[in-house]
Design a protein around this nucleic acid. Structure first.
Length: 288
DNA sequence: GAAACGTGGGG
DNA sequence: TCCCCAAGTTT
């Protein structure tokens, strides 16, 4: 079906790949795992400085495991979705306790670690250990939707058909390089908005382009709400805890969000998620 | 399967 | 300005 995509994309990647630190030969499996979690729903440019700091501070799972979880949250900064910091900390402890301090190489074992789903397990197994897996992230799904299926966007949720297609395209040799090449094409050329078909190595055989780039016809793609939501409130509250260096009086939290009902709900949520810790006396801090 | 979960930059 | 969306996972 999609014969002929491989070589042009691999050649394009050889000439256009970004020099990202977690792609360098000296990057450890731990460094790659950390990058993959940080990159979930987060642009590369924002991840870069935080990743550098984490690698300098915690070069091994053991180093991070020795810290309280709150330190991971503190040094997560404003990357977003801070439960990922907790997940990474829990990964470090599990790897230290159950895997001799070495990131497991098998997909199934990676998949059992907190915050590691289908994509991340496949990515780490591929990029850190050279295993052959279908690496289905939003970039790959979009490239395949366009180039093969002829549609502007992939379905809302990953389908079995997409997985079958991705698996059918895995080359016998150097599957990880193919995976990262397709991802990179999606990230730099075959973007969600304003795809640069003039720069695309497979434009001549892209089903979507050959069909005249028809507009997306699937179900409405729901936007993410944020302003005024619990999510925004949680972010405000956590920022206060992160930027403090000891227990924070409740009043300091009350000061950053007006609606008391929503504020209490958000704070309870942070505590329930393990991102905040109530102390006797009515103060709060990052989890120790 | 839908909804929750942060944040900031580009079009 | 406002909207979209960025290497997803969990409940």
């Amino acid at each position: 079906m999609a014969i002929g995509l491989h070589q042009p994309i691999l050649d394009w990647y050889a000439a256009n790949a970004r020099d990202l630190p977690w792609r360098r030969p000296e990057a450890s499996p731990w460094a790659i795992l950390v990058s993959e979690i940080m990159l979930q729903q987060t642009p590369v440019v924002r991840v870069l400085p935080i990743w550098e700091e984490w690698m300098a501070r915690w070069p091994t799972p053991e180093a991070l495991a020795a810290e309280p979880p709150g330190e991971a949250v503190r040094h997560w900064g404003r990357l977003g979705y801070p439960r990922r910091a907790l997940n990474l900390h829990a990964c470090a402890r599990a790897i230290t306790a159950d895997h001799g301090g070495e990131v497991p190489s098998a997909y199934e074992e990676l998949r059992r670690l907190p915050g590691i789903g289908d994509y991340t397990a496949a990515a780490v197994a591929s990029f850190a250990f050279g295993r052959s897996h279908a690496v289905l992230d939003t970039n790959v799904r979009r490239v395949l939707a366009r180039a093969v299926r002829g549609e502007e966007y992939p379905p809302t949720a990953t389908t079995a058909a997409e997985r079958r297609l991705a698996e059918s395209l895995i080359p016998a040799v150097d599957a990880p390089r193919w995976a990262v090449a397709v991802m990179e094409l999606g990230a730099l050329v075959c973007t969600a908005r304003g795809p640069r078909c003039a720069d695309c190595p497979v434009a001549a055989r892209c089903a979507w382009r050959l069909a005249g780039r028809p507009a997306y016809e699937g179900p409405e793609r729901r936007g993410q709400t944020y302003a005024g939501t619990d999510r925004q409130c949680r972010g405000r509250l956590l920022a206060v805890l992160r930027d403090a260096h000891g227990p924070v009086p409740k009043a300091a939290l009350d000061a950053v969000w007006d609606d008391p009902v929503q504020r209490e709900r958000a704070l309870d949520g942070l505590v329930a998620d393990g991102l905040a810790e109530p102390l006797p006396g009515g103060t709060y801090r990052l989890p120790a």
